Amino acid sequence: MSTKGKFESTRRRLSEQQAETVDRLTTAAVTVLRTNGFSGLTVRMVATEAGVAAATAYTYFSSKSHLVAEVFWRRLNALPHETPADGDSVERVCDVLRQVALLVSDEPELAAAVTTAMMGDDPDVEHLRIRIGREIRARLSEALGPRHDPDVLEALEIAWSGALVRAGMGYESYAQIAERLETTAKLIMAGQRKA
């Protein structure tokens, strides 16, 4: 990742020192979530945990939903983006969906918070939702191959977003959702030419 992209925020470009502050805040958010859950999380608590002033935290994050959505975006963005040359398109798509579904699977408080945060109406969350959606679309598109059916891509995106909601509602764990997404992807892609 270029230095320019490393310091990009949802609100503005960041200097190295500002990026370090944002890193501390996002790390602290996960710590606070583990003990207090999303309902008990406040930006002020996260600022205290990170050792920064609350006013400073609010210059970077407009709400707790914005902060949690940023944590998810950073984790997604950190996932390797290389599509393996081996395997067919079904295997590649299943791999992408599994990686995304398991991104927060070992942290139940964060997983639940991500779903809640992503549904928020904060404009900064909306911006992140768009970025996250574009990133997942790009990964799925790459996994499908250059001559994929746009309807298949859209169905896979809908399956992913539906799975996020289903996990957030507590119907299944993110690990179970990863398995369901693989089955769903295979059903959606049944009969597709293996690229």
Rank of each mutant, 00 (worst) to 15 (best):
E82Y: 15
M45Q: 15
A78K: 14
N77W: 15
F72N: 06
A47H: 00
A47T: 00
A54W: 04
T48W: 06
V52C: 02
G51T: 03
V52I: 06
P84H: 13
L67F: 05
L67Q: 01
E70Q: 15
S65E: 12
V68Y: 10
A55R: 12
R74S: 08
V46A: 02
Y60E: 00
Y58R: 11
T83G: 05
H66T: 00
S63Q: 02
F72A: 07
A55Q: 12
E82H: 15
S63W: 06
T83L: 14
V68P: 02
L67E: 00
Y60S: 03
F61G: 00
H81L: 13
S62F: 15
A57L: 06
T83R: 12
H66W: 05
A69H: 01
F72S: 09
R75L: 14
H66C: 01
T56G: 05
A53H: 10
T59C: 08
A57W: 02
A50D: 01
N77C: 15
H66F: 02
P80V: 14
Y60H: 04
K64A: 08
W73E: 12
V52D: 06
V71N: 06
T48G: 10
R75S: 13
V68T: 05
V71S: 05
F61W: 09
G51D: 01
K64T: 08
A54R: 11
T48M: 11
A53P: 06
G51E: 01
A54I: 04
K64G: 02
V68G: 07
Y58V: 02
A57S: 09
S65T: 06
W73D: 12
Y60A: 01
E49A: 11
A55W: 09
A69K: 03
V46Y: 07
A53M: 07
P80E: 13
A47Y: 01
